[in-house]
């Protein structure tokens, strides 16, 4: 079929001829497309009426839809529709829903909360959210901490005590752990002896001769380790001095090396350099007292508490 014939049969033209025979095809858009386009125009007008749309003067056209919410100061606010107000409304609704539980937390003792299955479930979910928001950046998502930086909350050793009261105190008032730098006070061989002694306390392979020299040094006024760590080296919870006789290591990365030499070197480093980074911030004032109570029970549960 020739082009000419096909054209005359099937394709419309605009009906106008230029220069005698010059014509223009008329291929209109499909009807469904045109009507869909009209529908989107109508949709847009409806949308502009309901929701914020056009800039107008120094502000904008807010639309007829609005959102009413109660802000954190207890004031009722009405805004034209926007996603922030929507979020505020939802947060508000969520806190209203949580309120009975937090009220219950405030009115119950720690022991009562821990024994109530329903409250226990609430602590697990609300506590996890609070912990993830506030505590996890240091103590890690599961509270496992990080050797050399932040204490592990899931073991059974508590630097400052693991009772509800002590955990609460830690959260409210913060903590500051400190160990002097011995590198400038003691000779390298003295530090090595002390490290061997500390290793011996936890059953890590060590040099017995150095360890006994370290033992003497530990309890002497020269190094004066016993002031803080105690004569039995079991630490003092009132000042957060760790127990050196157990298998738990916070500052010296002892579990990090397999060889005894590496373990002792890790202990040596801590003795030589001391510590001034065991800082737990104060949470009173940043979290509500109910939130701190929830966190107290949650953290207590993590490691089984004391």
């Amino acid at each position: 079929m020739s082009e000419q014939k096909l054209q005359s049969q099937t394709v419309q033209t605009t009906g106008h001829a230029w220069d005698g025979d010059l014509q223009e095809y008329n291929n209109p858009l499909p009807v469904w497309w045109v009507y869909t386009f009209y529908a989107t125009v109508i949709f847009a007008i409806v949308y502009w009426t309901i929701y914020p749309s056009w800039p107008f003067g120094k502000g904008w056209l807010g639309g007829v839809a609005d959102i009413t919410y109660v802000n954190s100061d207890g004031e009722t606010k009405t805004h034209s529709w926007n996603t922030r107000a929507l979020l505020m409304e939802k947060l508000n609704a969520a806190s209203v829903e949580q309120k009975p539980y937090f009220d219950k937390v405030a009115s119950m003792s720690y022991e009562q909360i821990a024994k109530d299955p329903e409250m226990s479930g609430f602590i697990q979910s609300a506590g996890k959210a609070l912990f993830s928001d506030n505590c996890a950046p240091c103590h890690q998502a599961g509270g496992q901490g990080k050797i050399g930086f932040f204490p592990n909350l899931t073991d059974d050793d508590w630097l400052y005590g693991g009772t509800y009261a002590k955990i609460h105190e830690t959260l409210m008032e913060g903590r500051r752990g400190y160990m002097p730098t011995f590198g400038e006070v003691l000779a390298a061989d003295q530090i090595d002896s002390l490290a061997n002694y500390v290793a011996s306390l936890s059953g890590i392979p060590h040099d017995a001769g150095k360890a006994s020299a370290g033992n003497v040094l530990f309890h002497s006024e020269t190094a004066a380790c016993f002031y803080c760590h105690g004569g039995d080296a079991k630490g003092r919870k009132d000042i957060g001095a760790p127990n050196l006789t157990d298998n738990i290591w916070l500052w010296a990365d002892v579990p990090g090396s397999d060889a005894a030499e590496g373990k002792i070197a890790a202990i040596r480093n801590v003795i030589a350099q001391g510590l001034n980074k065991g800082v737990m911030p104060v949470w009173a004032g940043r979290l509500s007292s109910e939130q701190i109570k929830v966190l107290t029970v949650y953290v207590h549960d993590l490691g089984g508490g004391q």
Binding site: Q140, T154, D155, P255
Partner: peptide
């Protein structure tokens, strides 16, 4: 509980 997978206790 996978964080941590296990905990070494003091003893």
């Amino acid at each position: 509980v996978r964080q941590p997978l296990y905990v070494v206790l003091s003893n």
